[in-house]
């Protein structure tokens, strides 16, 4: 049986799919990035630990996951590159879509989900960085499922 898919992620994908025009999609991503809120100090303070840094992300994104009472995860992010707008947009999307989602569903989110939001015109470096954010969220869910 295939893993469940996060419902909020599916809804966001449908929203972006309604925007075939590249400019409209970019504008939506920019407005999404503008909702970015950095990890609160009660979760992490600078200097952020290296083990929370997203590998391959050149915007210096960091990710934290905290267990909630219902067993799901709440995700927090920092993006140190002030020009890392795409990383901020991806952070907002992942928080909106995966915080509170069933761990099994988060653990199965594929890397290439980034293209549902950004389209295919991403550099390899940018793709790797954004996929790295997805992978780190996925790893957090897998560790939580394993009881780590």
């Amino acid at each position: 049986m295939s893993a469940p898919y996060p419902e909020k992620l599916r809804q966001l994908e449908e929203l972006f799919a309604l925007m075939p025009d590249r400019g409209d999609r970019l504008d939506l991503l920019i407005s999404t990035a503008e909702r970015f809120r950095e990890v609160p100090p009660e979760i992490a303070r600078r200097p952020f630990p290296e083990d929370r840094k997203v590998p391959a992300c050149e915007s210096e994104a960091y990710l934290w996951a905290r267990r909630r009472d219902d067993g799901t995860l709440k995700f927090y992010f920092a993006v140190e590159n002030p020009q890392g707008i795409s990383a901020k947009a991806m952070a907002v999307i992942l928080d909106d879509a995966l915080s509170g989602a069933p761990l099994e569903a988060v653990a199965a989110v594929p890397d290439d989900v980034i293209y549902k939001f950004f389209g295919n015109e991403l550099s390899m470096g940018k793709s790797m960085g954004l996929m790295g954010m997805v992978a780190m969220a996925r790893s957090s869910a897998r560790r939580a499922l394993a009881g780590a």
Partner: peptide, 9 residues
């Protein structure tokens, strides 16, 4: 840019 959002922002 590398980041496709930067110019438009």
């Amino acid at each position: 840019n590398e980041d496709p959002l930067v110019y438009r922002a």
